[in-house]
């Protein structure tokens, strides 16, 4: 559950009994902020949520004070790296370090609250970050770069429609036999899955 708008924090089911008032949510690293609540289930990647909100606050940064101008830029760079599967474990320490600094040192409310989604997801959903970095895996299957497209041989009728629609020629096979996707060539555009009439193509987390 994301609360307080783009610079709010993320809470989990264990916080369901927390009162929705300024002092209570603050204890858990969130803010009432805009008063908005975004409820998400397991189909949302929390690393991507942090990246999305950071891209918003980074764009909103006026550029006057150094912590916000430079800090949000670097935090966004790290988050982009992680969702693209290029993250390192040391990125998490850097992210934490910058986020804490920006929170304490920025000039205005935007900068001071910009790192909250990062800090709260790092705390509550750290395992998702680690999965993205170590296992190159996004459990919500939403981080495009980490998706792996597979063809279920039992469902595949060998019609060849997927191979024809693939823009990069990553799918090969013989008609009436099961087709195969080359993971090296696949650009994860989802066109094949969209085109398959038999739901034989699936995304592996």
């Amino acid at each position: 559950m994301q609360i307080g708008g783009p610079s709010g924090g993320c809470l989990t089911t264990e916080h369901l009994d927390v009162g929705l008032d300024f002092d209570s949510v603050k204890k858990y690293g969130a803010i009432v902020g805009s008063g908005g609540l975004v409820v998400m289930d397991e189909h949302t990647c929390m690393v991507e949520v942090a990246r999305f909100f950071m891209s918003f606050t980074q764009r909103e940064s006026c550029g006057k004070c150094v912590p916000c101008r430079e800090g949000t830029k670097r935090m966004l760079e790290i988050l982009e790296r992680i969702v693209e599967g290029n993250g390192k474990l040391s990125d998490l320490d850097e992210l934490q370090e910058i986020a804490e600094m920006v929170k304490s040192m920025a000039l205005c409310g935007l900068g001071k609250s910009a790192p909250l989604p990062v800090l709260s997801t790092l705390k509550t959903f750290r395992d998702e970050y680690v999965e993205h970095i170590v296992d190159k895996k996004c459990r919500a299957k939403t981080c495009q770069a980490l998706r792996k497209y597979r063809i279920n041989e039992e469902l595949c009728k060998g019609c060849g429609k997927c191979a024809k629609s693939c823009p990069v020629g990553a799918i090969t096979g013989k008609r009436r036999e099961s087709y195969h996707i080359d993971p090296e060539l696949c650009i994860k555009c989802d066109t094949c899955r969209d085109n398959c009439a038999f739901e034989a193509i699936y995304v592996e987390a």
Binding site: P67, I98, E100, M101
Partner: peptide
């Protein structure tokens, strides 16, 4: 301790850009 750490990081971020 933390202020010193933060100041250092600000200078590092400035140097980076």
């Amino acid at each position: 301790g933390r202020i010193k750490k933060y100041r250092r990081l600000i200078v590092e971020l400035l140097l980076a850009a």
